[in-house]
Amino acid sequence: MSDEVAPILSVKDLTVEFPTDDGVVKAVRGVSFDVRPRDVLGVVGESGCGKSVSSMAIMGLLPKSARITGSIKFRDRELIGLKPKELRAVRGRQIAMVFQDPMTAMNPVYRVGWQLGEAIKAHNKHFDKKQVRSRSVELLNMVGIPQASTRVDNYPHEFSGGMRQRVMIAMAIANNPDVLIADEPTTALDVTVQAQILEMLIDLKDQLDAAIVLITHDLGVVAGITDRMQVMYAGKVVESGTAEDVFYTPRMPYSIGLLGSIPVHTQDPAAGARLKPIGGAPPSLINVPPGCPFSPRCPLSDGTLCETVDPPLLRVGPGHVAACHHSDELAAMEDPLRLFSATAVPE
């Protein structure tokens, strides 16, 4: 990867494990990525692939039982192993987060102004009441809440879902963070609102000079707005590159499977008639079998190499890496996006 700008957030070989009654869940198994200033990084994968756990690890919000190894560096400062007090100074100030469900992510018993003010006060102890309030109103204006000066005294339940997510974003940007992690920010919202929220996030990024990590299971969400994307599967990054790389020249069958599950307008009735789900389910993260974790569901699986050797992330183009033993075959295919139509839709 030939990037001259130093990354602002750098994750190396991150692993996260949770001991449970049934065994150790290996939720994240060696994830590395860099986020550069003003970058928009899309992280894509289905639920349980470790994308949310990775972001919670960055925020230091995982439960105490989680075992974390590897390195998470923010501006060359190691976050793993930081004292709780030092970590609190980073959280909400340098790295902030927007959560999936704005219905439950806000405390129901406090006014939104109070909750915003708390976020401001946490990192600006010297602010007096007036300053906190005017900053709260300013933030609500920034995220497009109409009549912000009166809405600031409303309770969360008096806002609609989209408006609540705007308030959540206002809370996240309260202290001009350098990195904003948005974990499925639009999943719980109405489709008509989704686009507005995404657009606003990108606007804010420019205003604030922040980098955004956009976590989603929905490739359609990241399509137009990310600079770089990484696809995760079973706790690992399986493909990473520019949005164009992953969309037009995917080199890992799982990425293709994800693409196949987006509805598209097409002239070809055979290709567009039916969405193509990937058969089967992701492997259990308690006893991950050897070999490529996707092999049991993969139409390209050869049954020998794929099931014994876990493919490493290999360079398949400039700034484009993929973890697949058969990425050459994909490159040679005429229309790799049709890969899954060859297999029958599973019943």
């Binding site: 609190r88 946490a122 809370m171």
Partner: peptide
Amino acid sequence: NADYVRTARAKGLDEKRVILKHAFRN
């Protein structure tokens, strides 16, 4: 374990405040 407590932690609030003002108040 509620989402709003996670939000409170994500704001960088200290644990005492998270427990008393958010978890306990609810």
